[in-house]
Design a protein around this nucleic acid. Structure first.
Lengths: 112, 112
DNA sequence: CTGTATCCTTGTCGATACTG
DNA sequence: CAGTATCGACAAGGATACAG
């Protein structure tokens, strides 16, 4: 374990954290795990996220190879986002995160 | 799924992402998963992380209930950090992240 | 419908120096 | 040993407006 940047591509945690930096990445990946989604539909499911922000986050995930963007040459345009192969493998992480997240929420409630 | 802030404490992914925002949180949790660690030892294992930053990240994790800080009244002072109960439950997530992270690293290598 | 272009605010991180 | 204080730099996100 040495430098964060040097360790990208070496340490699984450094690498994971880098890919998951986006504030909405988990939520986006979760929605894509249910199947391909169009841009507009995704935005509808993620209120309080502007078009600009959603676009940036999707571009980042696409650049990281997590997400596949498929464009249908139509008018009006149609673009579908889906999980890539490595993205699909991430579903296991999502599942464990979902379980843990709910446990954490319970923990917070008890603490109140 | 509505607002990020409103959903903290409701949606497991929103909640998880909030807890894991820290740039070093995964790495710190990983090291603590091996057992209690003193401040200095932790810093030694995490080069390229200044004392100030490590201190802030630990404070954040402690505030979130992920980490327990135990202070021994000695001279020189000794402080041990360890995983809390909910922190221990996070180990499952760490394990799946480790597996996935390594798969992702392989994926990147193949892409080159 | 699916974006992009700007601009601005905010938060986070790191560097450095200092302390009980 | 285990921090804190301060400061500056930078990146990420959000608001708004516009475009193909």
């Amino acid at each position: 374990m040495e430098d964060r940047n040097e360790l990208f591509g070496i340490c699984p945690f450094v690498t994971s954290q880098k890919v998951l930096t986006g504030k909405w990445s988990l939520l986006i990946m979760y929605h894509l795990s249910k199947g391909p989604v169009r841009f507009n539909e995704l935005q509808r499911r993620l209120p309080n996220l502007t078009q600009a922000t959603l676009s940036k986050q999707l571009k980042a995930l696409e650049a990281d190879g997590m997400v596949i963007r498929k464009e249908y040459p139509q008018i009006p345009p149609k673009v579908e986002y889906s999980m890539s192969e490595i993205g699909h493998k991430f579903k296991i992480v999502l599942e464990s995160l979902e379980v843990w997240g709910n446990e954490y929420i319970e923990y917070i409630e008890r603490k109140k």
